Amino acid sequence: MNDKRPGVVTYLLLGALSLLFLYPIWWAVSSSFKPAAEIISDPLGFGLGRATLDGYRAMLADVPIGTGFANTALVLAIKGGMTMFFCPLAGYAFAKFHFPGKNLLFGLVLLTLMLPTLVLIIPLLLEMSALGWVNTYQALILPGSIDAFSIFWMRQIIAAVPDELMDAGRVDGAGEFGVYRRIILPIIRPGLAGLAVLTMMNVYNDFVWPVVAVNDERHQTLQVVLSTLAQNITGNRIGADFATVWSELLAASSIAMIPLLVVFVLLQRHFINGILAGSVKG
Protein backbone atom coordinates (compact mmCIF):
# COMPACT_ATOMS: atom_id res chain seq x y z
CA MET A 1 0.00 0.00 0.00
CA ASN A 2 1.34 3.41 -0.96
CA ASP A 3 1.93 5.84 1.90
CA LYS A 4 0.31 9.11 0.81
CA ARG A 5 0.90 11.01 4.04
CA PRO A 6 2.47 14.46 3.57
CA GLY A 7 6.25 14.45 3.69
CA VAL A 8 8.70 16.71 5.51
CA VAL A 9 9.00 19.02 2.50
CA THR A 10 5.25 19.54 2.45
CA TYR A 11 5.18 20.44 6.13
CA LEU A 12 8.12 22.83 5.70
CA LEU A 13 6.40 24.50 2.75
CA LEU A 14 3.11 24.86 4.65
CA GLY A 15 4.99 26.21 7.67
CA ALA A 16 6.75 28.81 5.53
CA LEU A 17 3.45 29.86 3.96
CA SER A 18 1.85 30.12 7.41
CA LEU A 19 4.64 32.40 8.61
CA LEU A 20 4.26 34.49 5.46
CA PHE A 21 0.54 35.00 6.07
CA LEU A 22 0.93 35.57 9.82
CA TYR A 23 3.76 38.09 9.55
CA PRO A 24 1.50 41.12 8.77
CA ILE A 25 -0.56 40.34 11.88
CA TRP A 26 2.59 39.99 13.98
CA TRP A 27 3.96 43.26 12.60
CA ALA A 28 0.73 45.16 13.34
CA VAL A 29 0.43 43.82 16.89
CA SER A 30 4.12 44.21 17.77
CA SER A 31 4.27 47.72 16.26
CA SER A 32 1.26 48.76 18.36
CA PHE A 33 3.47 48.36 21.46
CA LYS A 34 6.30 50.52 20.08
CA PRO A 35 6.86 54.15 20.97
CA ALA A 36 5.23 56.23 18.23
CA ALA A 37 8.50 57.61 16.86
CA GLU A 38 10.00 54.11 16.40
CA ILE A 39 7.15 52.99 14.13
CA ILE A 40 8.51 55.45 11.56
CA SER A 41 12.22 55.32 12.35
CA ASP A 42 12.53 51.53 12.81
CA PRO A 43 9.41 49.89 11.31
CA LEU A 44 10.80 46.33 11.20
CA GLY A 45 12.55 46.25 14.57
CA PHE A 46 10.98 45.25 17.86
CA GLY A 47 12.47 45.04 21.32
CA LEU A 48 10.57 43.92 24.40
CA GLY A 49 12.52 46.40 26.50
CA ARG A 50 11.02 49.31 24.56
CA ALA A 51 7.42 48.01 24.65
CA THR A 52 4.88 50.54 25.86
CA LEU A 53 1.10 50.86 26.21
CA ASP A 54 1.11 54.56 25.38
CA GLY A 55 -0.50 53.95 22.00
CA TYR A 56 -3.36 52.01 23.58
CA ARG A 57 -3.91 54.58 26.33
CA ALA A 58 -3.97 57.45 23.84
CA MET A 59 -6.24 55.56 21.47
CA LEU A 60 -8.78 54.79 24.20
CA ALA A 61 -8.79 58.46 25.15
CA ASP A 62 -9.15 59.77 21.57
CA VAL A 63 -11.37 57.18 19.86
CA PRO A 64 -14.85 55.93 20.92
CA ILE A 65 -13.86 52.33 20.24
CA GLY A 66 -15.96 51.11 23.17
CA THR A 67 -19.09 52.53 21.53
CA GLY A 68 -18.14 50.82 18.28
CA PHE A 69 -17.70 47.46 20.02
CA ALA A 70 -21.00 47.83 21.89
CA ASN A 71 -22.96 48.72 18.75
CA THR A 72 -21.33 45.93 16.75
CA ALA A 73 -22.11 43.42 19.52
CA LEU A 74 -25.76 44.52 19.59
CA VAL A 75 -26.13 44.32 15.81
CA LEU A 76 -24.32 41.00 15.72
CA ALA A 77 -26.49 39.45 18.44
CA ILE A 78 -29.84 40.46 16.91
CA LYS A 79 -28.97 40.29 13.21
CA GLY A 80 -26.99 37.08 13.64
CA GLY A 81 -29.81 35.56 15.68
CA MET A 82 -32.32 36.38 12.93
CA THR A 83 -30.05 34.84 10.29
CA MET A 84 -29.50 31.67 12.32
CA PHE A 85 -33.22 31.26 13.03
CA PHE A 86 -34.95 32.15 9.77
CA CYS A 87 -32.45 31.07 7.08
CA PRO A 88 -32.32 27.37 8.13
CA LEU A 89 -36.12 27.36 8.28
CA ALA A 90 -36.31 28.79 4.76
CA GLY A 91 -33.72 26.27 3.58
CA TYR A 92 -35.76 23.48 5.15
CA ALA A 93 -38.87 24.61 3.29
CA PHE A 94 -37.08 24.79 -0.06
CA ALA A 95 -35.32 21.45 0.47
CA LYS A 96 -38.08 19.23 1.84
CA PHE A 97 -41.44 20.73 0.95
CA HIS A 98 -43.32 20.81 -2.36
CA PHE A 99 -45.57 23.77 -3.04
CA PRO A 100 -46.68 25.71 -6.14
CA GLY A 101 -44.05 28.10 -7.43
CA LYS A 102 -41.27 26.70 -5.24
CA ASN A 103 -38.68 26.57 -8.03
CA LEU A 104 -39.63 30.04 -9.26
CA LEU A 105 -39.39 31.50 -5.76
CA PHE A 106 -36.06 29.81 -5.11
CA GLY A 107 -34.80 31.09 -8.46
CA LEU A 108 -35.74 34.63 -7.43
CA VAL A 109 -33.85 34.15 -4.17
CA LEU A 110 -30.76 33.04 -6.10
CA LEU A 111 -31.20 35.93 -8.51
CA THR A 112 -30.56 38.39 -5.69
CA LEU A 113 -27.08 36.88 -5.30
CA MET A 114 -26.19 38.34 -8.70
CA LEU A 115 -26.96 41.91 -7.63
CA PRO A 116 -23.91 43.86 -6.44
CA THR A 117 -24.23 45.34 -2.97
CA LEU A 118 -23.71 48.86 -4.30
CA VAL A 119 -26.80 48.53 -6.51
CA LEU A 120 -28.98 47.96 -3.44
CA ILE A 121 -27.63 50.77 -1.26
CA ILE A 122 -29.68 53.66 -2.70
CA PRO A 123 -33.03 51.78 -2.71
CA LEU A 124 -32.40 50.54 0.83
CA LEU A 125 -31.44 54.01 2.01
CA LEU A 126 -34.60 55.50 0.48
CA GLU A 127 -36.63 52.78 2.19
CA MET A 128 -34.99 53.47 5.55
CA SER A 129 -35.65 57.18 5.08
CA ALA A 130 -39.32 56.59 4.27
CA LEU A 131 -39.66 54.49 7.42
CA GLY A 132 -37.79 57.05 9.52
CA TRP A 133 -35.09 54.54 10.37
CA VAL A 134 -31.97 56.45 9.29
CA ASN A 135 -29.52 56.64 12.22
CA THR A 136 -31.30 53.85 14.09
CA TYR A 137 -30.42 50.30 15.04
CA GLN A 138 -33.26 49.03 12.84
CA ALA A 139 -31.40 50.27 9.77
CA LEU A 140 -28.26 48.43 10.85
CA ILE A 141 -30.02 45.17 11.77
CA LEU A 142 -32.91 44.43 9.43
CA PRO A 143 -31.43 44.85 5.90
CA GLY A 144 -29.55 41.68 5.03
CA SER A 145 -30.53 39.78 8.17
CA ILE A 146 -32.17 37.11 5.98
CA ASP A 147 -29.87 36.74 2.98
CA ALA A 148 -29.99 34.60 -0.13
CA PHE A 149 -26.62 32.92 0.39
CA SER A 150 -27.52 31.63 3.85
CA ILE A 151 -30.85 30.27 2.56
CA PHE A 152 -29.14 28.61 -0.39
CA TRP A 153 -26.43 27.05 1.77
CA MET A 154 -28.89 25.73 4.33
CA ARG A 155 -31.05 24.34 1.55
CA GLN A 156 -28.11 22.41 0.09
CA ILE A 157 -27.19 20.96 3.50
CA ILE A 158 -30.74 20.02 4.51
CA ALA A 159 -31.42 18.45 1.12
CA ALA A 160 -28.80 15.80 1.97
CA VAL A 161 -30.77 14.64 5.04
CA PRO A 162 -32.54 11.34 4.19
CA ASP A 163 -36.31 11.65 3.90
CA GLU A 164 -36.65 8.33 5.73
CA LEU A 165 -35.51 9.94 8.97
CA MET A 166 -38.16 12.61 8.65
CA ASP A 167 -40.84 10.03 7.83
CA ALA A 168 -39.87 8.06 10.94
CA GLY A 169 -40.31 11.20 13.03
CA ARG A 170 -43.74 11.84 11.55
CA VAL A 171 -44.76 8.25 12.26
CA ASP A 172 -43.78 8.81 15.89
CA GLY A 173 -46.20 11.71 16.01
CA ALA A 174 -43.86 14.66 15.55
CA GLY A 175 -45.18 17.70 13.70
CA GLU A 176 -43.23 19.45 10.98
CA PHE A 177 -41.54 21.85 13.39
CA GLY A 178 -40.85 18.93 15.72
CA VAL A 179 -39.18 17.04 12.85
CA TYR A 180 -37.11 20.13 12.11
CA ARG A 181 -36.11 20.66 15.74
CA ARG A 182 -35.47 17.04 16.75
CA ILE A 183 -34.14 15.51 13.54
CA ILE A 184 -32.93 18.17 11.12
CA LEU A 185 -31.12 20.52 13.52
CA PRO A 186 -28.95 17.85 15.22
CA ILE A 187 -27.86 16.52 11.83
CA ILE A 188 -26.96 19.89 10.31
CA ARG A 189 -25.05 21.22 13.34
CA PRO A 190 -21.73 21.42 11.41
CA GLY A 191 -23.45 23.49 8.73
CA LEU A 192 -25.02 25.73 11.35
CA ALA A 193 -21.62 26.24 12.98
CA GLY A 194 -20.13 27.22 9.64
CA LEU A 195 -23.02 29.59 8.98
CA ALA A 196 -22.56 31.14 12.43
CA VAL A 197 -18.87 31.87 11.78
CA LEU A 198 -19.56 33.32 8.33
CA THR A 199 -22.42 35.42 9.68
CA MET A 200 -20.26 36.81 12.46
CA MET A 201 -17.46 37.65 10.04
CA ASN A 202 -19.85 39.37 7.62
CA VAL A 203 -21.60 41.44 10.29
CA TYR A 204 -18.40 42.26 12.18
CA ASN A 205 -16.56 43.38 9.04
CA ASP A 206 -19.50 45.14 7.37
CA PHE A 207 -18.60 48.72 6.52
CA VAL A 208 -20.40 49.98 3.42
CA TRP A 209 -23.97 49.77 4.70
CA PRO A 210 -23.30 51.04 8.27
CA VAL A 211 -21.39 54.06 7.00
CA VAL A 212 -24.31 54.95 4.70
CA ALA A 213 -27.19 54.21 7.09
CA VAL A 214 -25.69 55.84 10.18
CA ASN A 215 -23.89 59.18 10.42
CA ASP A 216 -24.05 59.89 14.13
CA GLU A 217 -21.41 58.69 16.56
CA ARG A 218 -23.92 57.11 18.95
CA HIS A 219 -24.86 54.35 16.46
CA GLN A 220 -21.53 53.84 14.69
CA THR A 221 -20.28 50.26 14.46
CA LEU A 222 -16.66 49.28 15.03
CA GLN A 223 -15.65 49.36 11.35
CA VAL A 224 -17.05 52.86 10.92
CA VAL A 225 -15.21 54.01 14.05
CA LEU A 226 -11.96 52.56 12.69
CA SER A 227 -12.48 54.26 9.32
CA THR A 228 -12.68 57.67 11.00
CA LEU A 229 -9.93 56.92 13.52
CA ALA A 230 -7.27 59.20 12.04
CA GLN A 231 -9.77 62.06 11.87
CA ASN A 232 -10.78 61.52 15.50
CA ILE A 233 -7.15 61.44 16.66
CA THR A 234 -6.14 64.65 14.88
CA GLY A 235 -9.37 66.33 15.93
CA ASN A 236 -9.00 65.46 19.60
CA ARG A 237 -5.31 66.23 19.87
CA ILE A 238 -3.80 69.45 18.55
CA GLY A 239 -0.48 68.85 16.85
CA ALA A 240 -0.87 65.06 16.50
CA ASP A 241 1.84 63.91 14.11
CA PHE A 242 1.94 61.07 11.58
CA ALA A 243 3.69 58.69 14.01
CA THR A 244 1.05 59.27 16.69
CA VAL A 245 -1.76 58.52 14.25
CA TRP A 246 -0.07 55.28 13.19
CA SER A 247 0.55 54.22 16.78
CA GLU A 248 -3.10 54.61 17.77
CA LEU A 249 -4.33 53.16 14.47
CA LEU A 250 -2.29 49.98 15.00
CA ALA A 251 -3.48 49.75 18.60
CA ALA A 252 -7.13 50.01 17.57
CA SER A 253 -6.67 47.51 14.72
CA SER A 254 -4.98 45.03 17.06
CA ILE A 255 -7.90 45.21 19.50
CA ALA A 256 -10.40 44.86 16.65
CA MET A 257 -8.71 41.65 15.44
CA ILE A 258 -9.11 39.83 18.75
CA PRO A 259 -12.80 38.77 18.56
CA LEU A 260 -12.55 37.26 15.08
CA LEU A 261 -9.28 35.46 15.89
CA VAL A 262 -10.74 33.99 19.08
CA VAL A 263 -13.95 32.85 17.37
CA PHE A 264 -12.11 31.30 14.43
CA VAL A 265 -9.60 29.48 16.64
CA LEU A 266 -12.34 28.09 18.90
CA LEU A 267 -14.69 27.12 16.05
CA GLN A 268 -12.13 26.24 13.39
CA ARG A 269 -13.00 22.53 13.34
CA HIS A 270 -16.74 23.22 13.20
CA PHE A 271 -16.24 25.85 10.52
CA ILE A 272 -14.29 23.49 8.25
CA ASN A 273 -16.83 20.72 8.81
CA GLY A 274 -19.63 23.14 7.99
CA ILE A 275 -17.95 24.25 4.77
CA LEU A 276 -17.51 20.61 3.74
CA ALA A 277 -21.11 19.81 4.68
CA GLY A 278 -22.35 22.53 2.36
CA SER A 279 -20.07 21.61 -0.53
CA VAL A 280 -21.78 18.41 -1.63
CA LYS A 281 -25.28 17.08 -1.89
CA GLY A 282 -25.91 13.47 -0.99
Rank of each mutant, 00 (worst) to 15 (best):
residue 206 D to I: 04
residue 96 K to V: 15
residue 123 P to Q: 15
residue 209 W to T: 01
residue 257 M to H: 04
residue 71 N to L: 04
residue 69 F to S: 09
residue 251 A to E: 02
residue 32 S to W: 01
residue 30 S to T: 15
residue 280 V to T: 15
residue 258 I to L: 15
residue 218 R to S: 11
residue 70 A to M: 14
residue 7 G to E: 07
residue 1 M to V: 13
residue 242 F to P: 02
residue 232 N to D: 11
residue 218 R to P: 00
residue 239 G to K: 03
residue 135 N to L: 13
residue 210 P to C: 06
residue 277 A to S: 14
residue 4 K to E: 15
residue 176 E to K: 09
residue 144 G to N: 03
residue 258 I to R: 08
residue 30 S to H: 04
residue 106 F to N: 05
residue 131 L to T: 12
residue 228 T to A: 10
residue 265 V to E: 05
residue 229 L to Y: 03
residue 204 Y to D: 05
residue 228 T to M: 12
residue 25 I to F: 10
residue 248 E to F: 00
residue 38 E to S: 13
residue 183 I to F: 02
residue 102 K to C: 11
residue 90 A to D: 09
residue 247 S to G: 03
residue 10 T to E: 12
residue 22 L to F: 10
residue 3 D to K: 13
residue 119 V to N: 07
residue 84 M to A: 10
residue 234 T to F: 02
residue 5 R to M: 13
residue 105 L to H: 08
residue 170 R to H: 03
residue 12 L to P: 04
residue 91 G to R: 01
residue 244 T to L: 06
residue 148 A to Q: 02
residue 211 V to E: 08
residue 281 K to P: 08
residue 196 A to G: 02
residue 133 W to D: 07
residue 220 Q to V: 10
residue 225 V to M: 01
residue 277 A to K: 04
residue 279 S to I: 13
residue 88 P to A: 10
residue 165 L to Y: 05
residue 185 L to W: 05
residue 264 F to M: 10
residue 224 V to N: 03
residue 147 D to M: 09
residue 220 Q to C: 11
residue 149 F to Q: 03
residue 208 V to K: 07
residue 20 L to G: 06
residue 252 A to N: 02
residue 1 M to R: 12
residue 4 K to S: 14
residue 279 S to E: 12
residue 195 L to H: 03
residue 255 I to K: 00
residue 175 G to W: 06
residue 33 F to E: 00
residue 72 T to F: 05
residue 276 L to F: 10
residue 32 S to F: 02
residue 163 D to Q: 07
residue 26 W to V: 15
residue 235 G to A: 11
residue 180 Y to P: 00
residue 193 A to R: 04
residue 97 F to D: 08
residue 100 P to Q: 14
residue 3 D to G: 08
residue 106 F to M: 05
residue 210 P to G: 05
residue 221 T to E: 00
residue 216 D to S: 13
residue 128 M to C: 09
